[in-house]
Amino acid sequence: MKDTGILAAIPEGPRERLMALGHEMSFPAGTRIFEEGGRADRFWIIHTGGVNLDIHVPGRRAAVVETLGAGRLLGWSWLCPPHQWHLGAEATSPVRAWEFNAAEVLELCERDHELDHALLAYVIEVIGRRLRAARTRLLDLYGPYGSGSPG
């Protein structure tokens, strides 16, 4: 299948240099991978399994806003201030992922402009995709005319 994740987005050379910094992790189902407001100093690329992103609701269970699956980037708040997670993340099934230390990656990017450019383009593409998905969900997508006017 055509890969639409990081492997497709970053050319082979810089990708290998990036992957050399990653190490494999596994999280049992139910693990809280990070919490809203926590320090965003890492990110992951999901290899297998699913992760729910959620928002804390006082006095209630966290509200799940999106599920990420295989091949997806988990976490981008490490890239820009205030370097805090704006959502929480929980493994919904056993997860295997590559974990990256953000400081190490950013340091490599300072020297490796090819990687810097490709990684930034990839993260922006991911953010754009999630923004599009969130905007689409603002519509009553499954209602008549997707909440547009029938004209």
């Binding site: 699913g50 999106e66 599920t67 990420l68 699956g69 295989a70 919904t92 969900r137």
Partner: peptide, 22 residues
């Protein structure tokens, strides 16, 4: 997948196209 889930839902949340990954 559903757009909005309550606490009883343990499945996927998000747009249907995201399921193509699986």
């Amino acid at each position: 997948t559903v757009d909005r889930a309550g606490p009883e839902w343990t499945g996927n949340v998000g747009v249907v196209t995201a399921l193509l990954d699986q």
